[in-house]
């Protein structure tokens, strides 16, 4: 019947039904806390549009206990005035310009129920615990232009990603090369981080300078070595130029013995053996920022003991397996970190 009516309509020469451009989108954000940071205040999720001329929060919602919330995404009416930046390229056609609003997890420290950002390194606003990085939502600056320039297979991909909606708000994800691709419409997980990276990401319009290989460099920091009493310092400390000291390991506090990798905090615990000696290596690296410049800064601590005289907290062979890769008592093996 519907088609018959459309047919009659067509006979009469009236226009055909089309889909108008969606004026807003939505995104579902799941908040996780892998480091068990347990912020004291209520957490919320905000959509923040940052530009050269300021920022605008278009939506924010407090996160229920279940940890997920859906927030609307809608470009501010004065987006042009904001001077949205940076403009990324979605890998469609020859690169479709898009802006990715910041999805921010904040602690509602001032109990206003909404996100209030006072700027980078400012202290009065809500605390930023996480901001989207690889996965997020993109706002296509010229949807019609994009549609007119893509191939039919790319059109298929676009509608598969939006669930058939004609919308400038699309889910995006960064591929292994860092290029942004259309992504399935799925919840985005943001992990709470202790460091200032998220805050910086929001405040610096994502234009954060990062030295190349900064994480690798942080692994190369000279370790602080504690050698158990009764072991000759010479052979052990000859392999390093860093601080090497004799200590009664049993009297030292037990070091951490869990390995984890979260957004801005890496902790690696590794055990090694060499002859009658074995070591526990604790590597801790955090993402530190000063202004809009960030880098990984690592601290490496090594505990060396004889297999026959291990301190009571010694984790090797128990909670931490031995790393059998080639290396010394003092070096972290990447192979053992990511087997």
């Amino acid at each position: 019947m519907t088609r018959a009516l459309i047919f009659l309509c067509a006979l009469a020469g009236c226009s055909v039904r089309t889909q108008g451009q969606a004026s807003s989108g939505r995104v579902q954000v799941v908040v996780s806390d892998p480091e068990a940071l347990n912020p004291a205040g209520r957490l919320g999720v905000a959509v923040v549009w940052v530009g050269n001329n300021g920022l605008e929060v278009t939506a924010s919602a407090l996160v229920p206990d279940a940890g997920g919330v859906t927030v609307p995404v809608e470009a501010p009416a004065d987006a042009a005035r904001l001077g949205l930046t940076p403009v990324d390229a979605l890998q469609l056609a020859q690169g479709t310009p898009m802006y990715r609003p910041r999805l921010v997890v904040f602690e509602d420290t001032n109990r206003s129920g909404a996100f209030e950002f006072d700027g980078l390194d400012a202290g009065a606003g809500d605390r930023v615990w996480a901001a989207d990085d690889a996965d997020g939502v993109g706002y296509l600056l010229d949807l019609e232009g994009m549609l007119s320039s893509v191939s039919s297979s790319e059109t298929d991909r676009y509608y598969a990603s939006t669930g058939g909606l004609y919308t400038p708000y699309v889910p995006t994800a960064a591929d292994s090369s860092g290029a942004f691709q259309l992504a399935p419409d799925a919840p985005i997980t943001l992990s709470l981080g202790e460091g200032p990276s998220a805050d910086t990401s929001v405040g610096c319009e994502r234009s954060v300078t990062e030295p190349q290989l900064s994480l690798d460099n942080s692994f190369a920091v000279p370790p602080t070595v504690f050698v158990n009493t009764g072991i000759d310092l010479g052979p052990v400390c000859a392999a390093t130029t860093s601080q090497c000291q004799q200590s009664a390991l049993a009297l030292l506090p037990a070091p951490p013995h869990t390995t984890f990798e979260v957004d801005d905090h890496w902790q690696v615990v590794e055990c090694r053996r060499s002859g009658l000696l074995e070591s526990t290596i604790v590597f801790d690296s955090r993402h530190r920022c000063a202004g809009c410049s960030c880098a990984w800064q690592g601290v490496k601590t090594v505990y060396v003991a004889a297999t026959t005289a291990l301190p009571p907290w010694w984790p090797c062979g128990l909670s931490v397996p031995y790393c059998n890769e080639t290396g010394t008592l003092l070096s972290v093996s990447f192979t053992c970190i990511n087997p």
Partner: peptide
């Protein structure tokens, strides 16, 4: 006349046809 009977008509540009539905 090119129309999409789905509840969400699919807008697209098709080479040789232009913008559809239309």
């Amino acid at each position: 006349y090119v129309v999409d009977p789905d509840p969400l008509p699919r807008n697209a540009y098709v080479a040789g046809f232009g913008r559809v539905p239309g």
